[in-house]
Deep mutational scan, measured.
Amino acid sequence: HNLTITQGKLFFHYNPKLCLSEIHKMEEVSGTKGRQERNDIALKTNGDQASCENELLKFSYIRTSFDKILLRWEPYWPPDFRDLLGFMLFYKEAPYQNVTEFDGQDACGSNSWTVVDIDPPLRSNDPKSQNHPGWLMRGLKPWTQYAIFVKTLVTFSDERRTYGAKSDIIYVQTDATNPSVPLDPISVSNSSSQIILKWKPPSDPNGNITHYLVFWERQAEDSELFELDYCLKGLKLPSRTWSPPFESEDSQKHNQSEYEDSAGECCSCPKTDSQILKELEESSFRKTFEDYLHNVVFVPRKTSSGTGAEDPRPSRKRRSLGDVGNVTVAVPTVAAFPNTSSTSVPTSPEEHRPFEKVVNKESLVISGLRHFTGYRIELQACNQDTPEERCSVAAYVSARTMPEAKADDIVGPVTHEIFENNVVHLMWQEPKEPNGLIVLYEVSYRRYGDEELHLCVSRKHFALERGCRLRGLSPGNYSVRIRATSLAGNGSWTEPTYFYVTDYLDVPSNIA
């Protein structure tokens, strides 16, 4: 807008934040220059609390790290170098490059900038070799853009010569660093050979998330399962459950009422301010606690030095998902009996873990797994792929695949051998790939016309006998059925096997 004052003059007093240069501009645009008398524009009460600059400061050096910015700028000295009290560095987070010096300023003089007072450097006698002032900004957020400017702080001049310097606002972004852990990993099994893994992005990506790394490792069953005799009275049979499938998407929606109208769909109840505040506090606490764990609990591995020492970490090797089922080394339970199943799973520490690289999504279907087997899954978020990966501390989750139908069934015939004193040795093959492992066998036998009897055969007993022995049988026709019990439950009964026990007292003698 054009402003013209045809008559009258300007009068400025007691404006401590208004620089004289701005008042002189007002004289020019209003056409009143030359009308004012000496005392109409006070030299001592206008701009006496402001830094009124008329020179431009330029930054000469900028260096960044993930949490620091090192700045240096060209030296500046007023005509009387004693008038320079120091520099004021202003900075704040700036997602967009549209910041002005006066953003967030209120009537009390406060604003949204963080201000650092910096002492002037030592003055050199040689004007050509003056030290460049600077400042190291610490405690910054990774991968965050900051708006920065600097200006001088000078003393009051009796001659009211307006001098000083100020830089333009520059924008500097800190470097990326390792992201925080992925949030809320959930693993479920939808079949006997697959596990579905879902997660949420890290709360602090500290860069642009480029991919996720998912490692999985087959877990050995508890050692007590191999040692305890679950045929003993009072000892509860062990059981394991597989990871249940995901709930429906509708039930997972946030901010939804727990109660549904019987007449149909209901609208979600909005969260109160107290609920939102509580969630923010919980989120802040979780982030602080995660940072504490990362800094205190997890110790970084030592990389190899120039002395030739090897990095103890196993090298990563990509495998196809079809090879995942046989990740671990199978060892027989008892070496003397080769027909026992290889369900003991000690994992070799030198073995390469299978892994998958996930790009542009937060889910993965891990296939080719062994049925009813526990897996430990390790999830890392990465925001750099080359020249070397920059990934987060791992988040861990466990899951067990679903049982395989008929995996616990005894394959092959049940054979028998009759000894003296009416002892019958029953023999059968253990299931080759049971659900988890076989903890015991149930032997059901009966003599024709009598009630059915049951015998429990422990895992250890089966390994020693290759089956079991029935003792003290009365003469007669017998039928026997056997079924295995694994961590997933009972298998199917075998087809009945028949044998006849004679009275050993009636056996004919070869003595003449």
Results as ranks from 00 to 15, higher is better:
residue 484 A to H: 00
residue 315 S to E: 11
residue 372 F to S: 10
residue 378 E to S: 14
residue 492 S to L: 13
residue 303 T to L: 04
residue 443 V to S: 00
residue 418 I to P: 11
residue 293 L to A: 12
residue 351 E to T: 14
residue 327 V to Q: 06
residue 418 I to E: 09
residue 509 S to M: 10
residue 352 H to S: 05
residue 435 N to T: 00
residue 266 C to G: 11
residue 497 T to C: 15
residue 286 R to K: 11
residue 375 Y to M: 06
residue 379 L to E: 00
residue 231 C to W: 01
residue 433 E to K: 15
residue 488 A to C: 01
residue 211 H to L: 10
residue 308 G to L: 14
residue 330 A to V: 14
residue 325 G to K: 11
residue 249 E to L: 05
residue 409 D to Q: 12
residue 258 E to V: 05
residue 416 H to N: 13
residue 209 I to S: 12
residue 323 D to T: 14
residue 236 K to Y: 13
residue 437 L to K: 01
residue 326 N to Q: 05
residue 505 L to T: 14
residue 360 N to G: 07
residue 355 F to W: 13
residue 264 G to W: 11
residue 430 E to M: 02
residue 368 G to M: 07
residue 225 L to P: 05
residue 205 P to A: 08
residue 468 C to L: 05
residue 465 E to I: 09
residue 457 V to K: 09
residue 241 T to L: 09
residue 384 Q to W: 05
residue 371 H to K: 04
residue 432 K to E: 14
residue 271 K to L: 09
residue 322 G to Y: 09
residue 279 E to P: 08
residue 365 V to A: 06
residue 322 G to V: 09
residue 229 D to N: 12
residue 318 R to G: 09
residue 228 L to H: 03
residue 290 E to K: 12
residue 249 E to Q: 13
residue 478 Y to M: 01
residue 389 E to N: 12
residue 297 V to A: 06
residue 441 Y to P: 00
residue 283 S to K: 15
residue 344 S to I: 06
residue 232 L to I: 15
residue 427 M to Y: 06
residue 439 V to F: 06
residue 287 K to N: 04
residue 346 P to K: 11
residue 250 D to R: 08
residue 275 Q to S: 10
residue 447 R to Q: 14
residue 494 T to G: 00
residue 336 A to R: 15
residue 265 E to S: 09
residue 277 L to T: 02
residue 217 E to H: 04
residue 385 D to P: 08
residue 287 K to F: 14
residue 273 D to R: 11
residue 446 R to H: 13
residue 257 S to K: 10
residue 275 Q to L: 06
residue 415 T to W: 04
residue 318 R to M: 12
residue 264 G to M: 14
residue 208 N to T: 06
residue 449 G to R: 11
residue 302 K to D: 15
residue 359 V to W: 11
residue 289 F to E: 05
residue 499 F to M: 14
residue 496 P to I: 06
residue 498 Y to F: 11
residue 400 R to Y: 05
residue 506 D to W: 10
residue 405 A to F: 11
residue 373 T to I: 09
residue 275 Q to F: 07
residue 416 H to W: 10
residue 355 F to E: 10
residue 383 N to R: 05
residue 279 E to R: 10
residue 378 E to T: 13
residue 264 G to D: 12
residue 238 P to V: 04
residue 238 P to Q: 14
residue 343 T to H: 09
residue 383 N to A: 06
residue 425 H to F: 08
residue 247 E to K: 13
residue 494 T to V: 01
residue 282 E to S: 10
residue 348 S to N: 15
residue 360 N to D: 03
residue 453 L to N: 15
residue 454 H to L: 07
residue 307 T to A: 08
residue 344 S to D: 05
residue 303 T to V: 05
residue 340 T to W: 14
residue 467 G to V: 06
residue 215 F to P: 01
residue 394 A to N: 09
residue 471 R to M: 07
residue 260 E to P: 11
residue 304 S to F: 13
residue 242 W to C: 02
residue 455 L to W: 05
residue 250 D to G: 06
residue 397 V to G: 13
residue 502 T to Q: 13
residue 448 Y to T: 14
residue 243 S to N: 11
residue 453 L to P: 03
residue 239 S to I: 07
residue 507 V to L: 01
residue 363 S to I: 04
residue 334 V to P: 11
residue 463 A to K: 05
residue 254 H to E: 07
residue 235 L to I: 11
residue 354 P to L: 10
residue 397 V to S: 08
residue 494 T to P: 01
residue 278 K to W: 10
residue 210 T to S: 03
residue 332 P to M: 11
residue 256 Q to S: 06
residue 369 L to Q: 13
residue 472 G to I: 04
residue 455 L to C: 12
residue 268 S to K: 14
residue 224 E to S: 12
residue 506 D to L: 05
residue 318 R to I: 13
residue 211 H to E: 15
residue 358 V to W: 14
residue 232 L to R: 13
residue 203 S to C: 15
residue 340 T to Q: 05
residue 416 H to E: 04
residue 339 N to H: 08
residue 234 G to F: 15
residue 434 P to F: 14
residue 350 E to K: 13
residue 361 K to M: 13
residue 261 D to F: 15
residue 232 L to P: 14
residue 440 L to M: 14
residue 336 A to D: 14
residue 389 E to V: 12
residue 381 A to C: 00
residue 326 N to K: 15
residue 232 L to W: 11
residue 230 Y to E: 03
residue 211 H to G: 12
residue 404 E to H: 08
residue 251 S to T: 15
residue 319 R to G: 11
residue 495 E to S: 07
residue 232 L to E: 12
residue 399 A to M: 09
residue 455 L to F: 08
residue 266 C to L: 07
residue 243 S to W: 06
residue 315 S to F: 11
residue 377 I to A: 15
residue 307 T to R: 08
residue 481 R to K: 14
residue 483 R to S: 07
residue 453 L to D: 06
residue 424 V to T: 03
residue 334 V to L: 09
residue 227 E to M: 10
residue 485 T to I: 12
residue 332 P to H: 10
residue 416 H to G: 06
residue 217 E to P: 12
residue 289 F to M: 10
residue 360 N to K: 15
residue 420 E to D: 15
residue 298 F to E: 14
residue 367 S to Q: 10
residue 302 K to I: 09
residue 278 K to H: 02
residue 283 S to W: 05
residue 488 A to V: 10
residue 273 D to G: 05
residue 455 L to Y: 10
residue 432 K to P: 12
residue 397 V to N: 14
residue 232 L to T: 13
residue 498 Y to I: 15
residue 417 E to L: 09
residue 362 E to K: 10
residue 300 P to R: 14
residue 415 T to M: 15
residue 402 M to S: 12
residue 427 M to R: 06
residue 291 D to S: 06
residue 353 R to Y: 09
residue 206 N to T: 13
residue 375 Y to E: 00
residue 258 E to T: 12
residue 388 E to V: 09
residue 277 L to R: 07
residue 295 N to G: 06
residue 365 V to P: 12
residue 393 V to P: 03
residue 332 P to K: 02
residue 427 M to D: 03
residue 292 Y to F: 04
residue 304 S to A: 08
residue 291 D to W: 13
residue 306 G to M: 14
residue 362 E to R: 10
residue 215 F to R: 09
residue 355 F to Q: 10
residue 217 E to F: 05
residue 455 L to D: 15
residue 216 W to S: 02
residue 376 R to L: 15
residue 456 C to E: 01
residue 310 E to S: 06
residue 316 R to M: 15
residue 331 V to M: 13
residue 451 E to A: 14
residue 377 I to E: 00
residue 305 S to M: 08
residue 498 Y to G: 07
residue 327 V to G: 09
residue 385 D to M: 04
residue 386 T to K: 15
residue 482 I to S: 01
residue 492 S to C: 15
residue 289 F to V: 10
residue 447 R to V: 08
residue 301 R to W: 03
residue 347 T to F: 08
residue 320 S to W: 06
residue 475 P to W: 12
residue 433 E to L: 05
residue 275 Q to M: 11
residue 444 S to Y: 13
residue 234 G to D: 09
residue 297 V to M: 07
residue 220 A to G: 14
residue 284 S to D: 11
residue 511 I to F: 07
residue 506 D to M: 11
residue 207 G to D: 03
residue 396 Y to N: 02
residue 357 K to Y: 05
residue 458 S to A: 09
residue 503 D to K: 01
residue 310 E to G: 14
residue 278 K to T: 14
residue 226 F to N: 09
residue 222 D to Q: 13
residue 440 L to G: 04
residue 271 K to D: 14
residue 454 H to R: 04
residue 463 A to L: 12
residue 349 P to T: 15
residue 345 V to R: 10
residue 408 D to Y: 01
residue 471 R to W: 07
residue 466 R to L: 09
residue 325 G to C: 05
residue 256 Q to R: 05
residue 236 K to I: 08
residue 294 H to V: 12
residue 309 A to H: 13
residue 480 V to K: 01
residue 306 G to A: 06
residue 259 Y to N: 11
residue 362 E to Q: 08
residue 395 A to E: 12
residue 347 T to E: 14
residue 387 P to A: 11
residue 459 R to T: 04
residue 377 I to S: 05
residue 289 F to I: 08
residue 228 L to A: 02
residue 288 T to V: 11
residue 458 S to E: 09
residue 260 E to N: 14
residue 484 A to N: 00
residue 276 I to C: 06
residue 360 N to A: 14
residue 431 P to Y: 01
residue 223 S to W: 05
residue 262 S to R: 15
residue 426 L to D: 01
residue 449 G to S: 11
residue 357 K to P: 07
residue 261 D to L: 08
residue 484 A to P: 06
residue 476 G to F: 00
